[in-house]
């Protein structure tokens, strides 16, 4: 607790602050420079019997300079997300969040319903994937990984790519 020093009133003492630089009007009202929004939408189930699978549209919008495209849209299936997660786990230094579960039970034969092709299940998984990819892509270290950029912005996923970093030029 401070004491009143000579020459100065109590007020000056308790309101002594660091001086800060005044914000310019342009800064004050500027749109955020770190805009990144990824939607996982439009699930479609393709093929029949054993070749059946569901994929999702992964739609990205951003103003971050590290992304080559400011808007992009690709289609990815669950196994692609798994691939991305494994790549990041191996190469980056971040704690990669978990994916929504594999749903082993739903893959069992002799089920009365459509298993992993049930609408409710697909919707639940879609939400999980969306939350996963937003967490990952928002991380500055993950943003340096080549695999993330390929996953988000290249139409086909080349699993034989050469892993590496991207530098923000």
């Amino acid at each position: 607790m401070s004491k009143t020093t000579n020459g100065e009133g109590p007020t000056q003492e308790s309101t002594r602050r660091l001086t800060i630089k005044k914000q310019t009007l342009d800064d004050a009202y500027a749109a955020p420079a770190n805009f990144l929004e990824i939607d996982v939408v439009n699930p479609v189930t393709h093929g029949v019997a054993r070749n059946r699978y569901t994929d999702y549209e992964v739609r990205l919008r951003t103003n971050l300079p590290i992304f080559k495209l400011k808007e992009s849209s690709v289609r990815r299936r669950y196994s692609d997300f798994e691939w991305l997660r494994n790549e990041l786990e191996r190469d980056s230094k971040i704690m990669v969040p978990p994916l929504p579960g594999k749903a082993w039970k739903r893959l069992m034969p002799f089920r009365g319903d459509d298993g992993i092709y049930e609408e409710d299940f697909i919707e639940e998984r879609r939400k999980g994937l969306e939350s996963f990819i937003n967490k990952v892509a928002g991380h500055p270290l993950a943003q340096n990984e080549k695999c993330l950029h390929m996953f988000l912005q290249e139409s086909t996923l080349d699993r034989n790519y050469v892993p590496g970093k991207i530098r923000n030029s």
Binding site: G9, P10, T11, Q12, T15, R17
Partner: peptide, 16 residues
């Protein structure tokens, strides 16, 4: 209670 403090306190609060 202390009118003399007004100027400083007002300024301080609005900044804080």
């Amino acid at each position: 209670t202390t009118p003399g403090s007004r100027r400083d306190i007002l300024k301080d609060l609005v900044e804080m």
